[in-house]
Design a protein around this nucleic acid. Structure first.
Lengths: 130, 130, 130, 130
DNA sequence: GTGGTCTAGACCACA
DNA sequence: GTGGTCTAGACCACG
């Protein structure tokens, strides 16, 4: 579990943690059923507070990406819920301002989607490195 | 200047303001050289704090989207700086977590880029719809 | 806002708080749009920690019962979401064990529903006292 | 004894066990005098900890639903105590928040009691369905 | 040992 | 002054 936390960043630590876990799931470095460290263990490893890890876990749990299992501890949900209307709405709200600013700066639709495609491949592709 | 501010949203008000102005620029409802209301005027119109409008303006200025003249007031920058490395970095940082979560939920690259394309068109095209 | 917190009870404090607020909404002592104290104020009044109040508020917000408003602070949601399938499921999960135990002890269906009816009236009825 | 334990659920395992046993009693699948597996046996069958089964049994015993004989093992109490004031109090404490939340969401008294009636029938009637 | 809860005290972004 | 975030340290229920 190589996770890099930037304590100086504006992004809250629990958000960084959430995002890096999601990236690892997308990249299949973390597979459904895989275990995650306990809050205490993870907090110690990362040098952050236990509550901060807990907050990240709680949110991932609520989004259906992980399960908090009474015996096995924390595991990646084997059945991550697929995209629904609610998620599309949320995604739209996040994406719209980014697209707007890019358009302001003269990016064309093709350039923007190509930029996304690149990032997507970079994130999920070459998954066999692990 | 029809601006909708949602005081309940998690998004800070100054961000909402920034985003809506950028959307209007992208949509060409606001064209280079067009004027924006004064801080005081805008704050009064929207029923929000003067400092909040000011914060949005300052950030838009720093990103090069608007110019603040001491006398002529606030205008859309006729020469909005195009995309540079710094902006691409910022965009990447924002986009990556969104892509990661979408990938986790089973969205394919094609679906994601198509989703973006749709939003892009909706935002820039047919600007008279809203 | 007369709220009684029992620090000795098994029920977590934030749950007690949540429940008492919901009871007051059901009883129309708190009406849509009414304000609730700030977390700090409420915590001081109740003699509990600010985070405990915050936890109760966050959960009420997520259930759609309150709004956390950027200016006005915390208010009762004017449009509390009505019962949906998800809520019915949750209600079923809570109710089933209670019904099962009551049935074990010989309560008939009529007795149980009558018991509920009484409680319901006691909770919502005589609402004009305020 | 088909018992389903959900290790991911928020509900403690011993509670799940207690509830499912009570449901089976209510449904007359378990009749007064019927035997239950020994703690060891049950724990092994369910793949859970021995202490967990024991905790469920102890609570059921204390509530008068089962008897634990040193020799004859565990049996359903032939004379389950009927509803008393203490139980009514406990039931009220559990029911009140559920009623309050339902009322908040616009459920009428009739709807709530009808919901309960349905659950009650489903639980006690037609016991051979599951 | 695990997560759940609570407390206390601190800093920051927002308005 | 408000909520949002983070830290630290503590106790308890659960398994």
């Amino acid at each position: 579990m190589l996770i890099n936390i930037d304590l100086q960043a504006n992004e809250p630590i629990y958000e960084q943690l959430k995002n890096q876990i999601m990236i690892r799931i997308a990249r299949k470095e973390l597979k459904p059923g895989d275990g995650l460290p306990s809050v205490r263990r993870f907090a110690a490893d990362l040098g952050i507070n236990l509550h901060t890890v807990n907050k990240a876990y709680q949110q991932l749990k609520q989004e259906g990406l992980i399960l908090i299992h009474r015996q096995k501890g924390v595991v990646i949900n084997p059945e991550i819920p697929s995209v629904d209307g609610e998620y599309e709405e949320k995604l739209t709200r996040s994406l719209r301002p980014l697209i707007a600013e890019s358009a302001c700066r003269g990016m064309s639709e093709a350039e923007f989607t190509s930029f996304c495609r690149q990032l997507f491949e970079q994130l999920t592709g070459e998954g066999d490195e692990n």
